[in-house]
Every structure is written in C-alpha cells, then in structure tokens.
Write a protein that binds this DNA or RNA. Structure first.
Lengths: 216, 216, 216, 216
DNA sequence: TATGAATGAGCATTCATTCAT
DNA sequence: CATGAATGAATGCTCATTCAT
C-alpha cells in the first residue's frame, strides 16, 4: 500500500511543519530556556510526549525552528536577487517587504534575534546564523553599492549602511513583537538611510526613473 | 560604633553595586532563565549563598539590574535635556553618545532588550521598561520636532523617526554584543534618519557638520 | 475454513516461539529493566506494537522467556533421570552436557541468572525459579549420593557438592556469555568436584575415565 | 580556619564513602537500570538531590561503587601476594577467605557480576573489570602452578582451574546474595578443584589439611 | 558575613502501552 | 494481523532557595 505509506509520510511532514510553526512562535515569545516543551505541545494541541516523535530534543526543535526561520529570509533574498529593476527600485522593494514582513510576522525575526543572543547555541545553528547574517549584509550592501553608482544612494561604506538597515529592521521586529498595535514604520523613514540627497541645483524627478542600469 | 556600622553599610552598598554590574553582564549574555545564580556568584568571586544577602530572589536581582541599566539611560536623557545648543547639535550629541554607548557597553542595552522580550517580567520591570521606552521616544521625538522647526530635520512624523532611531540603536547593540570586533557605526549613517535634505538655495546653519562619513 | 484457522494458529505459535527465542537473547544480554520492547521487536523484524499481540506486558514476555529457559533445563534433567548407566557415568554425562550447554547457549543460563537476581520478579517466576533450583540441586545431589555408595564419588554432603557444581556452571555461563572466545572448560576440572580419590591398593572400575585433563 | 575546612573535607569524604556503601548494596540488589537514585537516597537517609552533590550522574555513582568493590578484591589479592607460606597454604587461605567473603559480603561480588553483565558499561568500568578479572585469574593460576611444582595441586592447565574457581565463587555469591540463610560452602569442596590426588606410597607434607569436610 | 550542604519543585526525556487505521 | 502515532506515568537531573555552621 504505497499510497497509505505516502500519505503517512506526507501527514508526518505536515505535522512536523505545523509543529515548527508553533515552535517558532513559542520560542520567539519566550526564548529557548524559558520555553517548556509542554507549552509547545499544548499550543499545538498534542501531548508533550508526541513532540519527541518529531524532534528528539528541545534543542533540536529549536534549531529546526531557526533553520526554518532563516530559510524564509534566504528565500526572500534569493527573490530579491532575481527581481528586475533598477537598484533603487529593488532597494525600495527590499525595504517595503522587510517592513511588511516585520509587521506581519515579527516572530520570525524575533526568533532569529533569540538565536543570535543564545549563548549556548549548537554549532549548526551558529553557522547557519553566521551565513544568514553575511548573506543579508552582502545582499543589501551590494544593492547599495549599485545604487551609489547610479547616484540614487548616498555615499558611505555600503556595509555600514547595510548594517544600519538590518539593525533597524531587527530592532523594529522586537518592538513590533512586543506591541501588536504598533503601526508599521513608513518605508520612507527606512529609505532615508540610503537615499541620496538631491544634487544641488537639480530638480529631482521621480528618482525611480533614473539610470536604469543593468545589474552585473 | 557608628563609624563601623557606616562602613559596613557603605561596603554593602559597594558590593551591591558590583553585584549589579556583574549581574547585568551575565543576564545580558544569557538571559534570565538561562542564568544560574551560581554563575553570577562565581564571576563575582563569592559563594552563591552570599548573593541572597543582597537580593532575595533571582528575579529581584534581575529587576534591579534592569533598573540599574534603565537608570543609566534616564540619566543620559536627563543630560540631553539640560544640554545647551541648537536642536541639531543636541541631536548630534545624542546620536554620538548613543553610538558610543552601544560600542562601549552594549550589554546594558542588550540587557534591556532581554528585559523587553522577557515574557514573564514582573509588573515593576514592565512598568519601568514602558517608562523608559516612552521617555526615549518622547525625548528624541521632541528634539526631532524642534529640529524640524529649525529646518535641520527632515519632515515626517517625529515619533516614527524616533522609533526608527531607537530600533536602529537596539539592533546595533545586539550586533555589537555578539561581536566584539564590530566597529562603531559612523554617526553620519544614523544622522541620515533625521537630516533634512539641502533645500535648494538655502543656507544651512551648520554645513560643516555634514559629509562626515569617513571610516576606513 | 478450518485449515486456514489452523494454519493461523500454527503460525501464531511459531511466531510466539521465535519471539521467545529473541526475547531470551535480548533479556539475557540487557536484563529486564534495561530491555526495551522495541529492541526485541527490531531484532525480531516486527513492529513493537505487534509484540503486544503475543504478550500483553513486558513482564509477561520476560516471564515466558524464563519459563522457556527453565523448561530446557527441566527437560535436560528429566533426560538425565531416564539415562541408563552407572551413577558415575551419568554424572559424567551431566557434566559434559552442562558444559556443552554453557558453551553453546550461555544466554539461557544467563537469563536464568538475570531472573534469579531480579529483585521484583512476579510470584510465578519466583516459584518457577525455586522449583528449578530445587530440582537441579536434588537431581545432582541424588546422583552424587548414589555415586558415593558405589565409591566413585568423594565423600561430603551431597547437597554441598551439588551447590558447588551448579554455582560453577552458573559462573561459567556468565563468563562465557561475556566472552565468545572463551574455550569450554575441560570436563575433568568440573569432575574433580565429585571424583573420589583413589583408595590405596584398590583397583577402580573405570580407571580410563581419569586423568583426562589435557588441554594445551 | 583550616581545621573547619579540613573537617568539612573529611566529612564530605566520609559521606561519600557511606554513599558508596549504600549504593553498592542497592545496585547489587537491583542492578543499574532498575535502581532509582531516590532509593539510594532514602536508604541513606538523605534527599535525592543531595546524591548529586557527591556524584554527578547515576552512572558515575555506579562506576564508583564498582571501583570500590573491585578495590576490595585487588587489596585482597595484594594481601595474598604478600602472605608467607607454602603455595598450598596460601591456596587454602585464598579459598577460605574467598568463601568467607562471599558469605559475609556477597553484595560486593554480586555487584561485580552486575557490572560484568552490564551491556552498556562505560569504558572506564569495562577496563577496570577486565583488569580485575585478569588479576584474579593470574594470581590464582600462579598459585596453582606453584602448587603443581610442589606436588600439592593436581595437574591441569592452571588457568582452567583458576577459571573454574572464580566461576564457582561468583556463582556462590549469587546464591548467597539471594538466600541469606544459605550456609557457607565447606572450603574442602572448593579445594577439591585443586588438591592433588594422593600418590600411592607417598607421604604428603600436610596430611592434616585433608578430610575437613565437616560442616556444622 | 560567608559558605556550601541540603531540600524539593520543576522540567526534559523515555518508554510501556493503547488504539485508530 | 501490522503499524506506528499518541499518551502520560515515571524518573533523571537541575537549580533556586534555605539554613546550620
């Protein structure tokens, strides 16, 4: 009965995913040490014993939830990579979507912050986080550098600006996670970190319409 | 022997302060739940039993460490309040000192982040944090509003800009706390969140303060 | 379909026996408390749930495995009982077969040792073990007493000698179970516990059976 | 206050020893897996938590109890080594004391048997046991070989005879541990494993040492 | 004060057992 | 019959807290 077996497998996979989702939320809210497996189980509507059918240890579940959250961001950046448009347009997209993401699912970033500040994270998690961080910064810094070439982005070390943006986003995620009534930050504020000041004596038109340069 | 008693009192006060400092560091590094009283004691060079002479519970110590950390920020803002100068100058000072603070003592802000994200913080801590947050935002927003009136600060809801600045600072504190080799963020990057774009044909009061993005 | 039902019954019986065999081995190796039902199931090639079709509890399976092992020894002694020959010949046979048994299937005796040393064995097991022990000792003591009457066995309380023999055999089973390279003990060594010293100036009936200690 | 510190240390050492004694008894009775730390604590009259002040894990305590038990036997054999007298006399001493030991403190040997049959013993325990076993066998085999040279011990591979003796002793320990009313085995029965048969027309050095099968 | 032995609530984890499929 | 998901009692272990010295 391959069908049944398949279905079982699929069901198991779905359960696992659902568990990861719940775990992400709970771990984000309370952190690794303060989260009791029973809480996740209860929130999931299963017995605590069953959690161990899917993940052998609390740490494993934590790590898996992290990987899951990081995956979301890696996917996000891969998307950005493929997005067409001028550097400035793409920066706008990145900012818009990051702010949107922070507003709609702050627990994902909060969980990442938890993982970052976890003093005893296992190596695998540590490595994944380092990779994530590098990727974020390099992607954004890359866009910034391009934007500087087209004159849309203010001067300054691209990496510094990228760091600032990511720090801002992480900080926002924390605020948002703590206050569900917090309104989303206007994208314009975030964009100020990158927007080039208008060149003296020049009337800026729609900056988006400038210099549509291909990207390397 | 009033002298001896006094000395005792003073010694106790000093010890208490030292303990708070150690606790701040350890709690910042590991969080409330993951910190063992014994670790703080060891780092302090005393027995774990002695910690209970100064603070009756772990939570009490945590709360005290938080208060201590918040105090530093409240003092900081009170200073700013009293600082003379144009709004822009004061904003510059604020930014400079915040970035300096993040660079030199990131654990203070990290501890505050820990406290903010602590799901089961006691009411006292919660209130203190809310007060701190409100104060930060209001102070900075106030400066921004003033700056907008003088034309030095870009338009936009002052509170949004203040939120962004504080989020950025908190995010930086996290990064810095995790990486002791991270260089300080150039103040200019932070100032971009507030700096008004040059109005065509307008003289700015402090043109010299611009274009300080230098960092190797 | 009586045929099918019969076959089912037979299949079930065979499975049950096979399960007992596996259980005997696993329980002998790890003991009751340390054995997981899943291990037996895995070693048997079935799912752990299926074990419960044959035995309702782990303890039941353990008890059944013990009974099975004891049965083997009771059969052995019943055989001895029926074996013709002089007492001495039968003693030789007993020793030979016990040593052979220990060498070839030490897990049977090891399981019995496990059962003996099980602090919380159920009454049924306890009784069966007591019966087994009594039977062993009485059978061997009986043979020894007969042998003493024919002058082939050294003097001494038959029960003491029987105890010593059985202790030696159990001890050997332990060694053997732990070391699959251990050679079998020369029967002659075991026989020394019973062999009568040569009476001065007397011809023994079976001098050939002596002095067979050779093993390099 | 060096005195106090010393006393503390000593007290701690004594407690540790007492705990080892209790652990030896309980582990011998129930085995590693079936023993609950709480049982040992209760039998010791302390809380289960306190056990962990002396030994970090159940396995560690088990291992320490084993080492302790093995130590006793190593001391025993070291004694034998230094004992003066003919090989035969020393063999008699060994047998007497082993039987006495089995009778008075069977739990020591039973614990060793538990350790031997423990499937998942840590390496340290495994090594200690192997050392113990080798030492036992070599010591006894050495005495036997000497005895054979003086003509007091029957011929045969000394190692086989030693194995038989140790197996017998271990088997006895099990019986004795299970039945506190079991009488000690007459030493003469054990000695039969080694005693040389009287050579026709020869005077033995120590005729008096024979025929001591009496048991009260 | 200062120490660390002592206690026990609390939580992670295991695993026998049940039962829907 | 077979499977393995599901449950929860049981137990190892941790650590905040107390307290005798």
């Amino acid at each position: 009965m391959p069908r049944t077996a398949e279905q079982f497998e699929q069901l198991k996979g779905e359960r696992r995913q659902a568990l990861l989702g719940v775990a992400r939320r709970v771990f984000a809210r309370k952190g690794l040490a303060a989260t009791k497996i029973g809480e996740i189980a209860t929130e999931m509507g299963i017995s605590y014993g069953l959690v161990y059918h899917y993940f052998p240890h609390k740490e494993t579940l934590f790590a898996a939830a992290i990987e899951d959250a990081l995956q979301a961001w890696e996917t996000f950046f891969a998307d950005v990579q493929r997005t067409p448009g001028t550097p400035w347009e793409r920066l706008e997209t990145v900012c818009t979507r990051m702010i949107q993401s922070v507003h709609e699912a702050p627990e994902t970033l909060l969980l990442i912050v938890r993982a970052l500040t976890e003093d005893e994270a296992p190596r695998a998690v540590r490595d994944a986080l380092a990779r994530y961080k590098r990727q974020c910064h390099e992607q954004v810094a890359g866009l910034i550098a391009e934007g500087q070439r087209t004159g849309d982005v203010a001067s300054g070390a691209p990496m510094d600006i990228a760091r600032a943006m990511m720090a801002l986003i992480q900080g926002l995620a924390i605020s948002r996670a703590l206050d569900e009534h917090a309104p989303p930050l206007p994208i314009e504020v975030l964009l100020r970190l990158v927007r080039a000041p208008p060149a003296a004596g020049t009337r800026r038109r729609d900056p988006a319409s400038r210099h549509r340069l291909a990207r390397t």
